[in-house]
């Protein structure tokens, strides 16, 4: 079943074209890696899919499970099943992870017509997902990302993903800032949460190393605002050894 269809997407920031005709289809059950040099537009693609203000779509279309994604507000996209893992997770002083995630989960559930989770049930769920990512529950009682190291922020993103349980995740350089041990934990977490016949992932990464843990079904190279080459996992190996310029 088709999950995401991006068709000839054009987007600009401050009048500067960044995405220039990007086309990509992701089916349920698939993990797609998007690789590409710095400045290629990878984060821009993630933000456009998330609906970030300032990222203006000037052409093309995106559908998620048949619904027009670009027509939705950012919080509606989350409710529709999309999760955006940030390259730079945002710190929110004064708001605890527990409060933030419980409000977020229950806002999504309410919007979908499901009953909100009680405090106790939520904590049980949070504890389970934190355990999956080997994150101390005490960290979740602290303010959102405040004082977290780069690696802790990325792990916290995956705990959030576990709790919100999306159908489709766009993970923007979730591997950056992770040491080798954390990389394995995060990789295992992504597999546990998202590897399912009714789910799909767009894994944006700069390096091949995360793909050793999360094996992609397809690898795409994004350069100058377009997908320039696609292939299987072997493409990632070639990129790693030969560089983007030789392959793309």
């Amino acid at each position: 079943m088709t999950m995401l269809i991006i068709d000839n997407l054009h987007a600009e920031i401050d009048g500067k074209p960044i995405l220039k005709g990007l086309t990509l289809t992701v089916n349920a059950g698939e993990i797609h890696a998007i690789m590409g040099p710095n400045g290629a537009g990878k984060s821009t693609l993630a933000y456009v899919l998330g609906g970030r203000p300032g990222y203006e779509v000037t052409g093309g279309s995106v559908t998620l499970n048949g619904a027009d994604l670009l027509d939705m507000d950012p919080h509606e996209r989350a409710t529709a099943g999309m999760f955006l893992g940030f390259q730079y997770p945002v710190e929110i002083p004064g708001v605890s992870n527990v409060q933030f995630l419980r409000e977020a989960l229950n806002a999504q559930r309410t919007a979908r017509g499901e009953a909100p989770l009680s405090g106790g049930d939520f904590l049980k769920l949070a504890r389970e997902k934190a355990g999956l990512l080997r994150m101390d529950m005490e960290m979740l009682k602290r303010n959102v990302n405040v004082g977290f190291s780069g690696g802790e922020k990325k792990r916290a993103e995956m705990v959030q993903m576990g709790i919100l349980d999306p159908a489709f995740a766009v993970l923007d350089e979730t591997d950056s800032g992770l040491d080798i041990d954390a990389l394995r934990v995060v990789g295992d977490g992504i597999n546990a949460i998202m590897r399912a016949p009714d789910k799909a992932v767009l894994l944006i990464t700069h390096y091949q190393r995360l793909l050793d843990y999360v094996r992609p079904d397809f690898v795409h190279v994004l350069a100058a605002g377009r997908i320039v080459t696609s292939g299987g996992p072997e493409l990632a190996q070639r990129l790693e050894s030969e560089g983007y310029e030789a392959v793309a």
């Binding site: 940030f86 977020a104 806002a107």
Partner: peptide, 24 residues
């Protein structure tokens, strides 16, 4: 603004995100 977008990306409608930020 980045906190607001981050909160929206997790499913919080704008009024609720604003309330949490004002509360903090």
């Amino acid at each position: 603004e980045s906190a607001r977008f981050y909160m929206a990306a997790r499913g919080l409608p704008p009024e609720l995100a604003r309330k949490l930020l004002v509360q903090a």
